[in-house]
Design a binder for these strands. Structure first.
Length: 204
DNA sequence: ACATCGATCTAC
DNA sequence: TAGATCGATGTG
């Protein structure tokens, strides 16, 4: 069951927590690449020095964050890696949730090729974890790029998030965000959420 | 125009 | 733990 726009048009911290356990789906080359979301971070531009939208600063890059909810904000980081966010709340807020890690669910063999150009059978356990346990890694594994997916409607038929059939039993860990040392007081905001004991969470 | 740097990852 | 690698951003 695909999440509707209404799901995204809520307070960002609620959306962030509720995204845990959901499945992100990228339909590409006739296949569903699917991962269960196990780690997220919230970014709330108006008050958040860690956000690209801080102080309601609209730039060419961050503009999508100020658009309507339920769209993908994909940006290039360190000149090499893509990261995907979902835009939250109502238009004009500059808020989004970064998806930091997923657990592979469908078409893992394709993810193995996207990451290592090797068959899944040849990977060690440690390398399976390494497929999707970080924001750049999961985008590579799932074929998500800024060029193809930035600004894409998550209520469409290419990239979306859906309810998982089972599972509501996990425990959520709340902590501070990763790699935002420059963000002064925002360094301490407890806006990172992950599923306790899930092996695909980054930075255990 | 140009210098700076990053919501990261990999290899050494 | 350092190096990769480049577009976005801010400044002059």
């Amino acid at each position: 069951m695909k999440l509707k726009r209404k799901f995204y048009n809520r307070p960002t911290l609620d959306v962030a927590k509720d995204l845990l356990g959901k499945k992100i789906v990228h339909y590409i080359n006739g296949k569903r690449l699917v991962g269960k979301i196990v780690e997220v971070e919230a970014y709330i531009g108006a008050i958040d020095k860690a956000a690209h939208s801080y102080n309601n600063r609209r730039t060419k890059r961050s503009e999508i964050m100020f658009g309507p909810p339920g769209y993908a904000y994909v940006y290039l980081i360190y000149g090499m890696y893509n990261c995907i966010n979902v835009v939250t709340q109502n238009e004009g807020k500059g808020t989004a949730v970064l998806i930091r890690a997923v657990e592979p669910v469908e078409n893992i063999e394709t993810m193995a090729y996207n990451r290592y150009n090797r068959p899944i059978e040849s990977l060690k356990k440690r390398q399976i974890i390494n497929l999707t346990d970080g924001p750049g890694k999961l985008c590579m594994a799932m074929g998500i790029t800024k060029a193809a997916n930035n600004g894409m409607d998550l209520c469409g038929n290419t990239l979306w998030i859906e309810k998982a059939a089972e599972d509501r039993t996990f425990e959520i860990v709340t902590t501070t965000r990763v790699n935002i040392d420059y963000a002064e007081e925002a360094v301490h905001f407890p806006w990172r959420f992950y599923i306790k004991d899930n092996p695909f969470v980054s930075r255990k």
